[in-house]
Design a protein around this nucleic acid. Sequence first.
DNA 1: TTGAAAGCGCTAACAA
DNA 2: TTGTTAGCGCTTTCAA
Lengths: 344, 344
Amino acid sequence: MPRSRSALRLADVAELAGVSLATASRALAGRDGVSDKVAEHVRQVANQLGYVANMHARTLAGGSTSTVGLIVHEIGDPYFSEIASGVIRVAGERDLMVQICHSGRDPEKEFRQIQTIIAHRAGIIIVAGSGYCDPRAQARSKAALTAFQASGGRVSVIGRHHLTADAVLPDNEAAGRSAAEHLLSLGHRRIAVVSGPDSLTTVEDRLAGIAGAIQRGGLTWSDIPVIPTSFTRDSGLQATEQILRDHPETTAIIALTDAMAIGVLSALRAHGIAVPDRISVVGLDDVSVAADLAPSLTTVRLPMAAMGELALAMALKPQSQRPRRKSTGHQLVVRDSTGPVPSG
Amino acid sequence: MPRSRSALRLADVAELAGVSLATASRALAGRDGVSDKVAEHVRQVANQLGYVANMHARTLAGGSTSTVGLIVHEIGDPYFSEIASGVIRVAGERDLMVQICHSGRDPEKEFRQIQTIIAHRAGIIIVAGSGYCDPRAQARSKAALTAFQASGGRVSVIGRHHLTADAVLPDNEAAGRSAAEHLLSLGHRRIAVVSGPDSLTTVEDRLAGIAGAIQRGGLTWSDIPVIPTSFTRDSGLQATEQILRDHPETTAIIALTDAMAIGVLSALRAHGIAVPDRISVVGLDDVSVAADLAPSLTTVRLPMAAMGELALAMALKPQSQRPRRKSTGHQLVVRDSTGPVPSG
DNA sequence: TTGAAAGCGCTAACAA
DNA sequence: TTGTTAGCGCTTTCAA
């Protein structure tokens, strides 16, 4: 790719304004050491010329970095696109650029993306998406991020990671509990769970919440069928087939994500099984289409966009002694996919 | 934000490898002018040290730029997140970073984002999202992009824009035609259209396709109610209320986007109106949830992810004499939301 | 308050 | 094939 060069340099502005390079630099950066009069004049000239500073030169010379790297599993996934939307919104307010990479939920690829972001000298790195239960999975990423922080970079993560960094912690356990309690309160005892990859902390936490509620409800957790799959609609669909086959007595299904819940609903519809009359379905996340499914999906809302905003806001603050941790809220949203246990 | 500095410089690698800066640079950039033996050695040393080049220094020194700027309306919108996914996928293969900005469908904000991207010295700018019917809306953006191209930058756009650049042209007109013809073939004569902002070329084109089909079908276009709103689910919902009130005889609704079609379905469900038995609904885009709505949505598929991939692929080729233009395909996807006109 | 000059880390001419 | 050197455009000491 050929280099892109805008003829306009700070030197041009300085010359036209009749000041030195240094003065022009100070004026435009809003630093002090310049009289208001001169500063204003320089800014006017720059504006007139349509001057925009070369970020590369600025960063290289030791100026501040104005880009934030965001690592998501896959931007096409609504969970992540909503987080990204929040990050970009806050970034836009501060004139920061957001660079987005796909990790593909692969620790190795995640590490490579982190390397690339560091090479681009981002000042902030946000790792969105679940952490891994096994600390070793992210060992290399952790080392890279620690070095990055040591050199002044700021890091924040969304989710429970084995990384030493400010963290936005989705209420995964509480959300799982909430979903399960909702079903229990409707009288369901034959509950099945469509789960995700059990290498992920998100899965661990959501399951823990569900398990706790189940046990407090007087049921035995190990009696509950838990089908591990991946976080996709199709996996939800297949897992449902399996549940219908192996556990026909099931009256309620919890899907660990809305994406999977959509697959669950599809499978049930294909089988002509009435929701919620015969089987209730509850998801987690509350992606924006959840309300528009038929039946509309009962789910537990996690504020994805707000999580993205918060992650960047935390990273914009100076590093604290110990990593900050902020929990998000969660909220059970009861819609039409859940109902009382069938009397049959 | 403090600067982020990795102590490791090319000079360190060169020294440790026992070669000059220039040789090290050549070796790592994969340029020739170095013996394979030396090159390999340098690369090994660099790898061992965990060296990653400073992009800013590299770009400033006249090397190639490795970032692409992508302007979308809003990344939380599935249409754009799928496009972005395609762009990021291709970028990942080539070690390019993708910077994403929101235009908010506001020409002024779009211009500012373009400025910012140019300041960051991206080598490629991709403008996704509809163009504006009024060329003046994008006049400033156009000027900025033209200057950018003149200095070696590459630009590609998705949609019909008044910009001189390589373009991926969604089959908007054909898609509109296809949707309308489908309804006509089912016998519908009382068709209403839920449209978007008529400042957008996307709206103009989709409506043109629909109008053409309608007229060829023997109907009078001006008799068809066209409700202009915005491209959102809620607008689709409200427009439907209006259609039910003002045009109760309607047997089919075309929504210009799936997002709006989702709102249409919601409104009809709220009114207890059977789809497709009393009213058929067809959307455009085929966002991924379209298949999972109930009833599943008949729509016309535009390959969003492929469009994103294509846009970047075009921009990666050297600029041609005249702007390239590539049409995307489109495909009618018949699902359960459309059926024959009610016999009543 | 202002200006001159020394880099930031790299690439790319130019020499050897 | 390799090395030397002059910048790229900016920020930031250090002097004035």
